[in-house]
Design a protein around this nucleic acid. Structure first.
Length: 874
RNA sequence: GCCCGCGUGGUGGAACGGUAGACACUGGGGACUUAAAAUCCCUUGCCUCCGGGCGUGCCGGUUCGAUUCCGGCCGCGGGCACCA
């Protein structure tokens, strides 16, 4: 064999690994453990380059840790419930179950050729009854522990599809499928009490040192802790006071009205007697709640006719309005308006003729507020008017603190800490999800299903030809007996949000076949996940839910004390992007072209592209004139190249990993996605880069092949090669441990170049190449095994111990010192590593280049940084 | 609006405050070939009067020395947002 053949080689080594059970995770108390996890995929049916990058990163870490003496757990599973399966059933017929398990089989078959060091014996899908049954058991435990409750909540209701929609599924106020205007409807839903842990989920972020700062910040903002004041406003009619929440009590002097939410009980109470008000509330309910719509939506209000007394200035009354901008589920659903210091309140006041009262001025400028609200930074000092709440000249921050204390001391209000975080609503009116294991009994009310009856299985005989939840209209599935009294009862037909499924799968992997949700002994050994890797798009929801779930599982006895934070270290990787090839049709609309339909190359460093069908594809055969003509054509009717775009079917810029594996092998795909770009950043897939990666791997193989037949005795350059190898061990190790795989790759390129030029003897070269095989193993394991075997390595390189650099080889005896004159590099000298500074100075001043540059000028200062640099200041 | 992050050759990117551009892609030139493929070698920041000069978004500061630290701009990207 004179050429490296990935197809046969890769299959050969995968079989060898399987036979040896190399990647089976072993609970070995004598060894330290390491748990590597990549966010598990949704079984769409096809793997994409993003998967390849994600899993290769995890694989590099897993393989390097295994070689370094850890007992490694590196599992894989499927986040298998969710709407796409139902949509497929609706569009194409068939059953969501068949679609899903078919996709899983397809994707597994696509993943296996990648040669990932995964323990496939632990694989599961969240739609397996063995999995969701355990999830139901935990749900019941959490219900009993007070972590789950039912309440009525406003939801997005699609009247045509007859289902609740998530906010993301409401587009321009319409259902994404039905295109029907979405209604706001009040429904009774199941909730997880994540807010019980709001404070802890926030404060524990500080301990997550190995999480990206960005993600911790995003979570902190999402939880959104704020300190403020709750103030009751007494009603003039003597009814119960309206309680407002504010984070700016220092502006209370400027309060000129109260605004309550359309969903506020007071608003609802008035509805019956006030047709105009009822109409207004109906309008509010119809309102679109999407972000964009709210931005545009006008701030509307209606006067209730009620009035309250100002808590401090008792003689002063404030009108009570209903405002469409007041949210019922944040604070108390009622706010006071301070038009002088809030732009929205000012607009509202101007619109409805409400007074504008200043609470403070900027020091030295007491012009009253007119068209623009005065909203200085909280750190800026302001002059409070009339010593309201005892305030004078101070910052807003200080003013807020003092006012809270003042109100509390006067008994006019209570200090309150509020969170933006809401409880997690998990009810979904869908079929393809985990059934909520409760029954509704006329006598006993809502009763959890008996654990003996778990799993509550999804029925198979369902149809999707009618909108709505098939479980709801199933003739028999709903019928059951009450676990408490034995009477006939109805099963809950809502299923759980699929985010529940992915909130504990990491724990299930530690004991995937246990008959309880977890096995505490296994969890004690394997938890927590040491390295979690996935996309930054999950920075908030999935990761926050998982952090909550770990705590809830602890409370219900399903996880040991050590596992309150499930993921010790988190890495968020960037996307794999690809150019888009775009032209325009006669109407000027963009038309996209598949990479394989486009001939793309660089002419004098300028990228150009045209449709392959238009021309002969062989550039090399073209004359200069033809090339020039081509260039002209590209300039006049160009296919525009849009770089670094997210791969998407509609833009036709998706590169299928299967095509790459077929053409070059898995190692090439793995090598490419680890090269060049830092893992946290996006990497652009280029065909030239992929080809180059394949060429490089073939080159390494060729060099190894030559070395295997080399017989040169000990020779010049042996030591140098050893030094280079030691350097590479250090660099590659550092790269992997620091999640800078691109630097590890660069170091391996450098060693290849050194080795190919080396004049060293066969023994030294063989040793260097074997070390290289070990260092290549995490990234390109098949090639590494092949080289290892070629050079008579013992056993499998995947099971060989990670090489350690000899420290003596890492330090050079002589160093090249650059000499700067006034900070600019002018010369260099070569000196023994530990030459005393005084001696270096003498050499520097005697250097002919230095003398020439000094031109006789006196040296004012001479800085010698031993082993690094010399700077001469004149 | 609020909160983050990032700006380095034609491109992706390297660089404990110490030789800016490692490594790679692209491009240019050459060798070997009847020819091609494959492979190998040289070259590739800009300007240059070939001495050197200029260069890490822009302006300033700290330092013997700044891509790196500080301040202010400009540009790009991300997250959150009727949150009271």
């Amino acid at each position: 064999m004179s050429r490296y053949d990935p197809a046969t080689t890769e299959a050969k080594w995968q079989t060898a690994w399987d036979k040896e059970g190399v990647f089976t995770a072993r609970h070995d108390p004598a060894k330290p453990k390491y748990y590597v996890l990549e966010m598990f995929p949704y079984p769409s049916g096809r793997i994409h380059m993003g998967h390849v990058r994600n899993y290769t990163m995890g694989d590099v870490v897993a393989r390097q840790k295994a070689a370094s003496g850890f007992s490694v757990l590196h599992p894989m599973g499927w986040d298998a419930f969710g709407m796409p399966a139902e949509n497929a059933a609706m569009e194409r017929g068939g059953h969501p179950k068949d679609w899903t398990y078919g996709n899983i089989a397809d994707m597994r078959a696509q993943m296996k050729p990648l040669g990932l060091s995964i323990d496939w014996s632990r694989e599961f899908a969240t739609c397996d009854p063995e999995y969701y049954g355990q999830q139901q058991a935990m749900f019941i435990d959490m219900l009993n522990a007070g972590l789950v409750y039912r309440k009525s909540a406003m939801v997005n209701w699609d009247p045509v599809d007859m289902t609740v929609l998530a906010n993301e599924q409401v587009i321009d106020g319409k259902g994404w499928r039905s295109n029907a205007p979405v209604e706001r409807r009040e429904l009774t839903q199941w909730f997880f009490k994540i807010t019980d842990y709001a404070d802890e989920l926030l404060s524990a972020l500080d301990g997550l040192k190995d999480w990206p700062e960005k993600v911790r910040l995003m979570q902190a903002n999402w939880i959104g802790k704020s300190r403020g004041l709750e103030v009751p406003f007494q009603r003039t009619d003597g009814a119960a006071p309206i309680v407002c929440y504010t984070t700016r009590p220092d502006t209370m002097r400027g309060a000129s009205f109260i605004a309550i939410s359309p969903d506020h009980p007071i608003a609802k109470a008035l509805e019956a007697d006030r047709p105009d008000l009822a109409a207004f509330l109906a309008e509010c309910r119809r309102m679109d709640t999407t972000e964009a719509a709210m931005e545009k939506a006008e701030k509307l209000g209606i006067d209730t006719g009620l009035a309250v007394r100002h808590p401090v200035f008792k003689g002063q009354t404030l009108p009570v309005w209903i405002g469409n901008f007041v949210l019922m589920d944040y604070g108390t659903g009622a706010v006071f308006g301070c038009p002088a210091h809030d732009q929205r309140d000012l607009d509202f006041a101007r619109k409805y003729g409400l007074p504008v009262i200043d609470a403070f001025h900027m020091p030295g400028n007491d012009t009253p507020v007119s068209n623009e609200a005065l909203v200085p930074l909280k750190s800026e000092p302001v002059q409070y008017i009339d010593h309201f709440a005892g305030l004078g000249l101070t910052t807003g921050q200080d003013g807020i603190e003092k006012t809270i204390d003042w109100f509390a001391a006067q008994g006019l209000g209570t200090a309150q800490t509020r969170f933006r975080l809401r409880d997690w609503g998990i009810s979904r009116q869908r079929y393809w999800g985990c059934p909520i294991p409760v029954v509704h009994c006329d006598a006993c009310g809502v009763v959890p299903e008996s654990k003996a009856n778990l799993p509550v299985r999804l029925p198979d005989d369902v149809t999707f030809d009618i909108p709505g939840n098939p479980l709801d209209r199933h003739p028999t599935w709903r019928d059951c007996t009450c676990p408490k009294c034995g009477a006939a009862a109805r099963r809950e037909t809502d299923t759980m949000d699929t985010f529940v499924d992915s909130s504990w799968y990491y724990a299930r992997f530690t004991a995937p076949h246990a008959t309880t949700p977890t096995d505490l002994a296994e969890a004690e050994y394997w938890m927590n996940v040491d390295q979690y890797i996935g996309g930054v798009e999950h920075a908030i929801l999935h990761l926050l839910y998982s952090r909550f779930f770990a705590r809830a599982m602890q409370k219900t006895g399903h996880l040991p004390a050590k596992a309150s934070e499930p993921f010790n270290a988190l890495f968020t990787q960037g996307m794999v992007t690809h150019e888009i090839y775009q032209s325009r049709d006669k109407a000027g609309r963009p038309v996209y072209h598949l990479p394989e339909d486009v001939l793309r190359f660089n002419l004098m460093n300028e990228p150009v592209a045209f449709l392959r069908t238009d021309h002969a594809t062989d550039l090399a055969e073209m004359t200069e004139d033809q090339l020039a003509a081509l260039r002209l054509e590209a300039a006049s009717t160009p296919i525009e190249i849009i770089p670094s775009a997210k791969m998407s079917k509609s833009k036709k810029n998706v590169v299928d990993p299967m095509n790459i594996i077929a053409a070059y092998g898995a190692d090439t795909a793995r090598w490419f996605v680890m090269s060049d770009s830092p893992p946290e950043r996006d990497v652009e897939w280029t065909s030239s880069g992929a080809e180059a990666a394949a060429k490089h791997l073939a080159r390494v193989w060729r060099i190894a092949d030559e070395i295997s037949r080399d017989a040169t005795p000990a020779n010049l350059g042996d030591t140098e090669l050893q030094r280079a190898t030691a350097r590479t061990i250090a660099d590659v190790t550092q790269g992997i441990e620091g999640f800078a795989f691109n630097k590890s790759v660069a170091a391996l390129y450098a060693l290849t170049n050194t080795l190919s030029k080396s004049t060293a003897g066969a023994v030294a070269k063989r040793a260097a190449m074997k070390t290289m095989a070990q260092l290549l193993q995490p990234m390109v394991p098949h090639l590494a095994e092949e080289i290892w075997a070629m050079l008579d390595g013992v056993g499998l390189v995947s099971q060989a111990a990670w090489p350690v650099a000899d420290p003596a080889l890492l330090v050079d005896d002589t160093v090249t010192l650059p000499i700067q004159i006034n900070g600019k590099r002018r010369a260099e000298i070569s000196v023994p590593k530990d030459m005393p500074a005084a001696q270096v100075e003498k050499l520097v001043l005697a250097d002919e280049d230095v003398i020439r540059f000094l031109a006789g000028q006196p040296v004012r200062k001479l800085i010698v940084v031993p082993g690094r640099i010399v700077n001469v200041v004149i």
